[in-house]
C-alpha cells in the first residue's frame, strides 16, 4: 500500500484521511471518532491492528497511545493478530449450540487442521467461536468478513469452504471497508447494492 508521503510511517491513504476528517465532523469532539478511526486503520493495515496502526490512530486523533490501546482492546472485532484471508466466526451461542454449532466447529477444526483461534499455514483460513450473531433463526450462523452464512451444518460446511477458497470476497479488509462506507454519508452510492 502506498504511503502518500505520510510522515512517521503513517499509512492512511488520502481517501482514508478524507473519510476520517468527514466522520470527525459528526461528533462534538474529535475523540469520539475513535471506533471509526480504528475501523479505518484495520482496513489500511491489512485487516488487523499492529502497534503502528494504533499509533497512527493516536496521532490522528491527538490522543495518548495508551487510550487507543485501552479502547481497541475492549472490542472483539478489532484484530491484534493477522487473521486468515477468510476468518470464519462460528456462533456457538444458545440457539446455534442446540442446532449443531459445536459439530460445525469440530468439523471445521478437523477439515482445516487448526483449532479455534488459529490460522492455517497458508494464511487462507482462521476460525473463532463467537457469541450470538443475532440471526438465530438461521442457526448455525457463521460470519465471514462482511457476510453472514445461515443454516450451516457439519454436512454442508465443506461447500462453504469450497466457495470461500474460490472467492476474493468477505475478507477482514472488506469487512472494515464496508463499515467505513456505512459511516460515511453518501456511502450507499459507493457501496454495491
Amino acid at each position: 500500500m502506498e504511503t502518500n508521503g505520510n510522515e512517521g510511517g503513517h499509512r492512511f491513504s488520502q481517501k482514508s484521511i478524507a473519510q476520517l476528517d468527514e466522520i470527525i465532523t459528526h461528533y462534538p469532539e474529535r475523540r469520539a471518532a475513535m471506533l471509526p478511526a480504528l475501523w479505518i486503520a484495520q482496513r489500511e493495515y491489512d485487516g488487523y491492528l499492529p502497534p503502528e496502526a494504533l499509533q497512527e490512530v493516536a496521532d490522528r486523533l491527538e490522543r495518548p497511545l495508551s487510550e487507543v490501546q485501552a479502547v481497541a482492546s475492549f472490542y472483539t472485532m478489532y484484530n491484534f493478530r493477522k487473521r486468515g484471508r477468510h476468518h470464519l466466526e462460528v456462533c456457538t451461542c444458545l440457539s446455534c449450540a442446540v442446532r449443531g454449532a459445536y459439530e460445525v466447529m469440530h468439523k471445521l477444526e478437523k477439515e482445516l487442521g487448526i483449532s479455534a483461534g488459529e490460522v492455517t499455514v497458508d494464511g487462507e483460513f482462521s476460525i473463532a467461536e463467537v457469541e450470538c450473531l443475532d440471526f438465530c433463526g438461521a442457526a448455525t450462523v457463521v460470519q465471514v468478513g462482511d457476510q453472514y452464512f445461515g443454516n450451516v451444518t457439519a454436512e454442508n460446511v465443506d461447500m462453504l469452504l469450497d466457495q470461500l477458497r474460490n472467492s476474493d470476497s468477505h475478507t477482514p479488509v472488506e469487512l472494515a471497508d464496508a463499515l467505513v462506507k456505512i459511516m460515511t454519508p453518501g456511502g450507499s452510492e459507493a457501496a454495491p447494492a
Partner: peptide
C-alpha cells in the same frame, strides 16, 4: 459491527 447487511440498508435509507 457484525450487522453489515442491515447497516447498508440504513445507510441507503439515510442517504
Amino acid at each position: 459491527g457484525e450487522f453489515v447487511e442491515s447497516a447498508k440498508m440504513v445507510r441507503k435509507a439515510i442517504d
